[in-house]
């Protein structure tokens, strides 16, 4: 799946299926510091994301990066 990271904008590939928590762990991102978005809806940690999905990981701490 494609994972879009912000500040600066960039994209990485992660293999699915996985839970959101597993994707963030693989990328070394603290879940409390981000929102995860798919098709403009928010996902929770236990939601599953599939191969072929596109998700955005948006930092929420201003001054932040992910």
């Amino acid at each position: 799946m494609k994972v879009r990271l912000r500040n600066p904008d960039r994209e990485v590939e992660v293999t699915g299926p996985k839970t959101v928590a597993e994707v963030l762990a693989e990328l070394g991102i603290v879940p409390e510091a981000v929102l995860v978005i798919r098709d403009s809806t928010l996902l929770t940690r236990d939601d599953r994301v599939e191969e072929g999905d596109e998700i955005e990981v948006r930092p929420v701490l201003s001054g932040g990066s992910a």
Partner: peptide
């Protein structure tokens, strides 16, 4: 801050994400 970000998103507020 995670809650205010989620609120802005769910309410469709077009805020500036760029720092």
């Amino acid at each position: 801050e995670r809650e205010t970000a989620a609120y802005a998103l769910l309410r469709g507020i077009d805020y500036i994400v760029e720092e």
